[in-house]
Amino acid sequence: MFEARLVQGNLLKKVVDAVKDLVTDANFDCSSSGFTLQAMDNSHVSLVSLSLRSDGFEHFRCDRNMSMGMSLGNLAKILKCAGNDDIVTMKAADDGDTVTFMFESPKEDRVSDFELKLMDIDSEHLGIPDTDYAATVTLPAAEYQRICRDLSSIGDTVVISATKDGVKFSSSGDVGTANITVRQNTTADKKEEQVSIDLKEPVALTFALRYLNSFAKATPLASHVSLSMARDLPVMVDYQISDMGHLRFYLAPKIED
């Protein structure tokens, strides 16, 4: 059987809220090492990769590797019924066709359980190669969200270029053009405002803003987000989930005409 108890239950809610608009149905894979998900969006342009390590759960038991297909919309509906401070426990039998979510209030005065029907989902697992990225910028997650939102009002695509001067986000459209540059700032008073840039060589790539905007729905999960780029390769947008794992998005670049 599978059983996992997460004291910070709202973390699961944040994860599902972050991906449910990008991916409708997905398989959650459970093994003794943890709880993972890999799924592409419907257009197969981006890939979501979630990893929650077993040691991040208060209790984790998985006797046999299993894949649980879920509608993320339905899962979000169920998780919405959990209190913000509730402890969430997931349970599933090895051969069952449901997964149960149990919500316990911190004062232990309210317990509820919701059963979600599992579904058969044909999904392809992609191999994500280890990549030596040319540039990685780590910036406040809220700043990334703002850049994507602001540029979306100007154009449909963004050119992200990393040079020794900083990382520039440029967009253009009928309205005009916009450039936003973030520079390294590791001495900001507040840690949550720090920006760090790791540049091995300059790189510039073009991406659809629609997807980058969608990834920003993961903002509540982490104070910072990292964008890693290499020439002619998908960008990796990485939200670290403290003490547990990560939620990563990969987006294929656009090719200049």
Binding site: H44, V45, L126, G127, D156, Y250, A252, K254, I255, E256
Partner: peptide, 14 residues
């Protein structure tokens, strides 16, 4: 859209 690559052309299927 035009010029948009698929993620599957970068990450091989297992």
């Amino acid at each position: 859209g035009a010029g948009q690559r698929n993620i599957t052309s970068f990450f091989g299927k297992h």
